[in-house]
């Protein structure tokens, strides 16, 4: 980042010098862990996530205790934060509500994405390790999980891609404010109301939509539109990563 950022606001650039609809550097690798059935490493700017998938294998409950879902594979998501991932080195509680909400979101969205009926009486375990946090954490987790599941070879309908968008800061002269911002970093996330959106495939099929802050109803439309566009771009990048990896076997 250059030291002089004083002209950024004049040029309508953001704190880190991006334009409103620009993604951060999205770097991803797959098959990073040899021991896991599937694995991926994903960076969205300074947010870094490592994901491993094991399964489908016989779950702890086995076939008998599978209950109503025993005709489908059960998906388990575990999320762990590295002690050094945040700004403060804080010991996190094993099960705080925010983390269980995140894993619930991943479980629910992946259950609809994966062809779970092909694996009755089995469990797919997804483990996400957050190495560094700088905004768009849920989005990074979703993208990493998608890549790791592809690496594991578990059949799915399409890519599940996610990104975040924020409502534009309202300035005094323009009532409506500027354009919504795409792919937030940690600083922007603190300041602006934002939403996380995940889509399946190339269209407008929204799988996950989570917003946690108060915003005018009219602004949601713009944010959602930019978010869906962003997801398409993320999809292209992830697709490239997968195809690049596939070339090695050609």
């Amino acid at each position: 980042m250059p030291l002089d950022t004083s002209t950024y606001s004049l040029a309508l650039l953001r704190l880190d010098g991006r334009r409103w609809n620009e993604l951060r550097r999205l770097h991803a690798q797959i098959s990073t862990q040899a021991a896991a059935d599937g694995s991926s490493y994903l960076e969205m700017g300074n947010t870094k996530v490592l994901c491993t998938v094991s399964g489908p294998h016989e779950g702890k409950a086995g076939g008998a205790g599978g209950g109503p879902r025993s005709t489908q594979a059960k998906i388990e998501v575990e999320i762990s934060f590295a002690g050094f991932s945040g700004v403060e080195r804080k010991k996190r509680q094993a099960k705080d509500k925010r983390t269980s909400e995140m894993s619930h979101t991943l479980t629910q969205s992946l259950a609809a994405l994966l062809l779970t009926h092909l694996y009755p009486h089995s469990t797919i375990t997804i483990h996400l390790s957050i190495l560094s946090q700088d905004g768009s954490l849920l989005a990074a987790c979703i993208n990493a999980a998608t890549l790791a599941l592809i690496d594991a070879g578990i059949p799915m309908t399409d890519y599940l891609c996610a990104c975040t968008t924020a409502a534009p800061p309202t300035s005094a002269e323009t009532e409506a404010g500027g354009d919504p911002l795409l792919d937030l970093n940690g600083q922007e996330e603190q300041e602006l109301p934002f939403l996380t959106v995940a889509t399946v495939g190339k269209g407008h099929a929204v799988s996950v939509l989570i917003m946690e802050s108060r915003v005018r109803m009219e602004k949601v439309e713009g944010m959602l539109a930019v978010g869906v566009e962003g997801c398409k771009r993320v999809r292209e990048i992830l697709d490239k990563v997968v195809k690049e990896h596939g070339k090695r076997f050609a």
Binding site: E101, Q108, A111, S207, V208, L209, I210, M211, L224
Partner: peptide, 14 residues
Amino acid sequence: VCQIAKYGGATVDA
């Protein structure tokens, strides 16, 4: 809007 939550499930048109 104070909060929106759609935790996965089947997809819905925007």
